[in-house]
Every structure is written in C-alpha cells, then in structure tokens.
C-alpha cells in the first residue's frame, strides 16, 4: 500500500518534471534526444514486463518494434491511410504475430527460449530487408507523414515531446497497476519457479502468452512513435543489435523495475550522444556493460543504488 502511494507521488513528480522540461527546453537537439529517450523507455518497459517480471528472455524484441514502425509506414505512406487508423492495425499486427509465435516459443525455457526468440527476430529482420517491393529493402523506407489531429499537427519537436512522454507516463501507470495485481504476482511467481506457480493454480502458459502479447503491443506502439518522428526507417534499426540494445537497457536499469526502464533507456540513449567518438566503441561498451552488470550487479543499477542507500541508512540508524 505504501509502495503504491510512493508510486503515485513519483508519477506526479515525473509528470511535472516532464511538463517543465517540455516547456522550458526549446532547443531542437535536446528535445529530439528526449523524444528518443521516451521511445526507448517505452521499449525497455515493454521488455521489462516480459523479462524482468515474468523472467522470459527475448533476444528478438526489436522485431515487434519494427512491425509497428513498418506497418504504420506502409499503410500511411503507400496506402495513404490516416496514421490514426494505421495505429490500431500496427498494434493488431504485432499482437497477432506475438500470439502465433508465442504459443510454441514460450513453451521453451532457458537457452532454448533465448535461441528461439533470437531466430524469430532474425527472420523478421530478414523480411524487412528482403521484401524489397513492400519495405524498401536495405536502403529503407522514406516519406512517412507526421501525425495530425484535424488541423493540429505534431510537427514540432515540442508537440511530439509531449505526445511521447504522455504515452510513457500512461504506460508507467498501467504497468505499475499490472505489477501490483494478481496478474503481476503470478508473473513474478513464474519467474521464481514455474513448477510451483503451476502447482498453486497459475495457468503459466496463458499467463506468459498474455504478457508476451502485451509486451509486443507496447513495442509496436514505440515503433509507431518512432516512425512518425524520424519519417525514415531502415532494417538496421530493428536488427539483432537493436534487440540487444533493449536487453541492455533493461539489464542496466534493473530487471523487474519500472523506473529502472527509464534509467536504462536514458543512459543508453545519452551515452552515444555524450561520447563523440562513441560509435566505434559502441558495441564494446554495450558488451562490457552487459557482462559487468550481470556479474557484479545482477539486480541492475537502480536496485544496486537502492540497496547501497538502504545499507547506509541502516548504518546511520545504528
């Protein structure tokens, strides 16, 4: 109960901070970086629900991100459909694929699940690259329109900033509610022991499938937001490395931590911006960070910092 209250306060503070940031910052570069942080936070949050809470690894999550981006790109550009009509279709596409792929894949555990999701992600990225006539192939897809509501267009960075962070806040609330509910407890129970979870009455297969589908829908929404922000997408953005980037965000921020997703996404979006010559070292840094965090701070940075703080507070009280 106390936790829920702190979360409400955190949400209010967070919303106020986002509002202030959006109004005060009018530098296009910073706003764009913040927009990408928002999109990545949504992605990290979606994977965290699956990997952090339910304990089901996915090394192909960028596939759903890509399905969202490509579906809206193709419908709104090639077929001139309104993006707002493309959005439900994009989410429906991701949900359908997740459902069909999820049934056999989520029966796998451990390494096999890792390889299975990886193989799925690879196939989807090969489709993006090879289905030239529809996706534009390796050179990418250009000319995606901006979002509009009537005559109001989300064509400035400031407007897009509010849209993206509004969505992120919305999902923070939704995910917190899920985590604190009967469903969230069942997911964590599956993480701790799938056998035991089934033995106390949890339909583990159905539970894993529903969180996988939700996670895919969120990633697809992130892809939608991405496509209508950059107007150009290419298969690179949704490759294996992209899936690993999302995993890295979750691992750094902390598995099973909603606010950790924000931290992880922020760090991994800002790092390349800060380190100018980062591009050449990007992979090495990701790799090293993944290994070091998993070896020394398996709970992630957020939990690690909280643990340190609580330890010091305990010491002080003594």
């Amino acid at each position: 109960m106390i936790r829920t209250d702190t979360h409400t306060i955190a949400c209010i503070v967070f919303a106020a901070a986002a509002l202030a940031t959006g109004i005060l910052i009018d530098d296009a570069y910073y706003l764009q970086v913040l927009i990408f942080i928002g999109i990545n936070t949504l992605l990290a949050l979606s994977l965290n629900m699956l990997m952090g809470y339910a304990g089901q690894i996915s090394l192909g999550h960028a596939a759903f991100y890509g399905i969202g981006a490509y579906t809206t790109a193709i419908l709104s550009t090639t077929y001139n459909l309104s993006p707002w009509l493309a959005l439900p279709i994009a989410i429906f596409a991701a949900v359908t694929v997740a459902y069909i792929v999820g049934i056999p894949t989520l029966r796998l555990t451990g390494y096999y699940l890792g390889m299975g999701t990886l193989g799925f992600g690879m196939i989807v990225s090969i489709i993006f690259r090879e289905w030239y006539s529809v996706t534009g192939g390796a050179s990418g897809f250009v000319g995606i329109p901006p979002l509009e509501i009537g005559s109001f267009s989300f064509d400035t960075d400031q407007r897009y900033f509010f849209l993206v962070w509004g969505v992120v806040l919305f999902f923070f609330i939704i995910c917190r509610r899920i985590v604190d509910s009967r469903v969230g407890r069942a997911l964590r129970a599956i993480h701790d022991g799938e056998h035991a979870a089934a033995a106390v009455g949890v339909n583990t297969a159905a539970m894993k499938l529903s969180i996988f589908v939700l996670s895919a829908a969120m990633a697809s929404l992130a892809g939608f937001l991405y496509a209508h922000q950059v107007f150009f997408i290419s298969p690179e953005t949704f490759s294996f490395l992209a899936s690993i980037r999302i995993v890295t965000m979750v691992v750094i921020g902390g598995m099973a931590s909603i606010w950790g997703s924000l931290l992880g996404a922020s760090l991994l979006t800002l790092l390349p911006e800060w380190l100018h010559a980062f591009a050449d070292y990007e992979m090495m840094v990701y790799g090293l960070v993944l290994m070091l965090v998993m070896i020394f701070l398996p709970q992630g940075l957020t939990r690690g910092i909280i643990d340190l703080y609580e330890k010091s507070r305990k010491n002080r009280n003594k």
Binding site: L59, Y111, G114, M283, M284, L288, V289, I295
Partner: peptide
Amino acid sequence: IVLIIITVGASIFLRG
C-alpha cells in the same frame, strides 16, 4: 538467463 546475457554481452564485445 544470466549466462545468456553474459555470453551475448561477450559476443557484442568481441565483435566490437
């Protein structure tokens, strides 16, 4: 899950 992430990390690191 921990070993998957570590070996994936190693793979990205070695590639870099």
